[in-house]
Simulated scan of single mutants.
Amino acid sequence: MTSMSPARHWTVRSRGELLALRMPLRALVVLAILALLLLAVSAISLGTGTYGVALDQVWETLRGVTISRAIDNVVWEFRFPRTLVAALAGAMMALSGAALQNVTRNSLADPSLVGVSQGAALAVVTLTVLFPDLVMTWRPWAAFLGSILVALVIRGLSRTHNGGSAIRFILMGIGLSAFISSITSALLTYGEIDRAMSALNWLAGSINAANWNDVCTLLIWGAVLLPMLLVISRSMSALRFGEAAATGLGVRVAAVRNIELAVAVGCAAIATSVVGPLGFVGLIAPHSARRLAPSGMGLHLLLVALTGALLVMVADLIGRAAFAPIQLPAGVITALIGVPVFVILLVRSRPSNPS
């Protein structure tokens, strides 16, 4: 049973009202628009490249109609997995940023800014340069371990006698990121040239070499991590009001924060292990989703995921088409967009001087 409330909300009730959801109509409309935009960009991405494919040919190929063997190979073996990987990696990086911002109560938290992505990058580069035979098997697990270690170190160092400090979390993350990046640079400098070049290409956030194995990796982990966030979304909403208020509402604050941190690290680590660091996606997507349509935490997470997916897909499309035949990595495009956004957010968060 569904109904429209006067305050422009869509209310869904099950029989007996065992389940009742009240969702802002604007957020639902924006969610549908983002989904349509995602489909449109996907179609353009599948048809764009050195070997041009018309949209009607893309549709027929996806339906299973073989127009030519060349088009089949281009769409199914190269562009389709690349498009899916861009969407999935973008969604996971965006969700990681949203979870980090909630758990730290800091709107500037981002996996690429506070060292989480750098921890994953160092672990993967270490495998690539020193143990290349283990990369394909252990890359996701090494990335997760590197990310979780960095996250735990930053959280421990940012603790004060009065609890966690948002500004200390950011500063510790930036400092540790610089330290980790220096170690990564040393590995790239003194490692064998072919292994270093492979790692360097991956570090740029390139989706050029995406394949169906990468799609499966992201799908499996995404199917595990996203539901975990949705399950604790009500508790995440309570944490917005502070630890004391959340405790008063019956939230197990420590447990929820640990789950949030683990999911945030997991999303960033898996996405980074597949496509490399994607800078500022976790910063831009949550803010964009919040401005497009304020909503409850559960719906906000879905908006964040779609926004992040759209952002990385557009970045990959621009990098592929704007300077063809030269291809710019998606990570370079997201960084070019993210740095001005980060500066703007810093300026807006600056406290005003009393007159």
Rank of each mutant, 00 (worst) to 15 (best):
A109I: 00
A109G: 01
A109F: 00
A109C: 02
A109M: 01
A109D: 00
D110F: 08
D110A: 09
D110R: 03
P111S: 03
P111G: 01
P111R: 00
P111H: 00
P111T: 03
P111E: 01
S112R: 08
S112G: 14
S112E: 14
S112Y: 13
L113C: 13
L113V: 11
V114A: 06
V114F: 00
G115R: 00
G115N: 01
G115D: 02
V116M: 09
S117A: 10
S117R: 01
S117N: 06
Q118S: 15
Q118P: 09
Q118M: 15
Q118I: 13
G119S: 11
G119K: 05
A120K: 00
A120E: 02
A120S: 08
A121S: 11
A121W: 01
A121R: 00
A121F: 05
A121L: 06
L122T: 07
L122M: 10
L122R: 03
L122P: 08
A123D: 03
A123Q: 02
A123P: 01
A123C: 10
V125T: 07
V125C: 08
T126A: 15
T126V: 15
T126M: 14
L127F: 02
L127P: 00
L127I: 05
L127G: 00
T128W: 02
T128P: 04
T128L: 08
T128S: 08
V129C: 08
V129F: 10
V129M: 08
V129K: 03
V129Y: 04
L130C: 13
L130M: 15
L130K: 10
F131V: 14
F131H: 14
F131A: 15
F131I: 15
P132S: 12
P132I: 08
D133Y: 15
L134R: 11
L134M: 13
L134C: 12
L134P: 11
L134I: 14
L134Y: 11
V135W: 02
V135T: 05
M136K: 14
M136D: 15
T137N: 13
T137R: 14
W138P: 06
W138A: 09
R139H: 13
R139C: 09
R139L: 12
R139S: 11
R139W: 13
P140L: 04
P140M: 04
P140G: 04
W141I: 14
W141R: 14
W141K: 13
A142K: 00
A142P: 05
A143I: 05
A143L: 09
A143V: 07
A143F: 06
F144R: 02
F144P: 07
F144N: 05
F144C: 07
F144E: 08
L145R: 07
L145Y: 07
L145I: 09
L145G: 03
G146Q: 04
G146M: 06
G146R: 02
S147L: 10
I148N: 07
I148Q: 10
L149E: 10
V150Q: 01
V150H: 01
A151Q: 02
A151M: 07
A151C: 10
A151N: 03
L152G: 11
L152M: 13
L152P: 09
L152W: 10
L152S: 12
V153M: 07
V153E: 04
V153A: 03
I154F: 05
I154S: 04
R155K: 15
R155E: 13
R155H: 15
G156Y: 11
G156E: 09
L157N: 05
S158N: 10
S158R: 02
S158A: 12
R159I: 11
R159M: 12
R159S: 11
